[in-house]
């Protein structure tokens, strides 16, 4: 009897139906939202006028601009510092390979709550709670930092080699010393990577929280939009881009100083792999 050879690369019926449904839904949603070619052409027209009014950028109001940028930078630096300092003990408590479950549970819950809300929503919350200004922005980004690097720190700690920890324990070292000599050397370079990434991310977020009144250049930007000062908007956007680029250079410098300077980097002197996991994109 001839049994037909199984065909390779067969797509299951379920997958076919799934793709079909997805395509149908996309059409339906597009029709619901007036997502049509004509609408796009009308939009382009408007966009061209808008971009035309943005140039040349207007830097005449530079004092306001600098004030906003400096405030954003300060929000980012303070929020990162606070977030990192709080994340260190929280992530240690959350690590299941070092802590009993009564400690990991609450710590993990705290991280999960901090993670679940977008920084803008948290910023609105803090503006309502503590009033307009940079304090609300700082607090919002501290929360975001805990949610993000707290989780990454925890994962880094949970991936360490317990053999090294066991050897340090066997010498009669106290718990604090086990952490200092058995755990920290194994995670330090990754911590620095996560921390600088978070600082970078906070810098971007700090330009945004101002939109909801939580301080920084975002407020200035929003006001300029509302007044249709599009040339000033352009000046602000260019300044933000410059700020972010400078921030990135600073982050690389920090990594170089802390990781290579303290000898915790990878052995062959290469720069540690960029500590940005795939999930790291969501705050941008």
């Amino acid at each position: 009897m001839n049994v037909p050879a199984p065909r390779p690369f067969r797509v299951s019926t379920g997958a076919r139906v799934g793709f079909l449904l997805l395509a149908l839904y996309a059409f339906y949603a597009a029709s619901q939202l007036d997502f049509t070619w004509d609408r796009f052409i009308t939009g382009l027209d408007n966009g061209a006028r808008f971009i035309g009014r943005m140039f040349p950028p207007n830097f005449s109001n530079w004092e306001l601009l600098i004030k906003g940028l400096v405030e954003s930078l300060q929000i980012a630096v303070l929020a990162s510092l606070g977030g990192i300092l709080i994340s260190l003990p929280v992530s240690l408590l959350a690590s299941r390979n070092l802590m009993p479950s009564w400690a990991t549970w609450p710590a993990r819950a705290l991280i999960a709550v901090c993670r679940s809300l977008h920084p803008v929503i948290v910023a609105i919350f803090f503006v309502k709670a503590v009033g307009f200004g940079a304090l609300a922005g700082i607090l919002a980004l501290v929360v975001a930092s805990i949610g993000f690097i707290g989780k990454l720190f925890t994962e880094a700690i949970e991936e360490i080699s317990l053999k090294q920890v066991e050897a340090v324990r066997a010498t009669g070292a106290s718990f604090a010393n086990v952490i200092l000599f058995g755990v920290l050397p194994q995670v330090f370079s990754r911590f620095v990577g996560f921390a600088t990434y978070q600082t970078d991310s906070n810098l971007r977020s700090s330009t945004m929280v101002g939109i909801v009144g939580a301080g920084g250049i975002g407020g200035t930007l929003f006001a300029a939009f509302q007044r249709f000062d599009y040339d000033f908007v352009c000046a602000i956007l260019l300044s933000i881009i410059a700020l972010i680029m400078v921030g990135e250079m600073l982050a690389n410098l920090i990594r170089a100083v802390f990781v290579e300077g303290l000898g915790f980097g990878s052995r062959d002197g290469k720069r540690p792999a960029p500590a940005v996991p795939s999930a790291a994109k969501e705050f941008d």
Binding site: A167, V168, N177, F181, G263, F264
Partner: peptide, 23 residues
């Protein structure tokens, strides 16, 4: 061996004194 890989040889030896050393 269970040495702490990223510490120096000297630091690994001093690990043996951690029981007598404050944090």
């Amino acid at each position: 061996y269970n040495l702490v890989e990223r510490l120096s040889v000297m630091e690994n030896l001093l690990t043996g004194r951690l029981g007598y050393t404050g944090a």
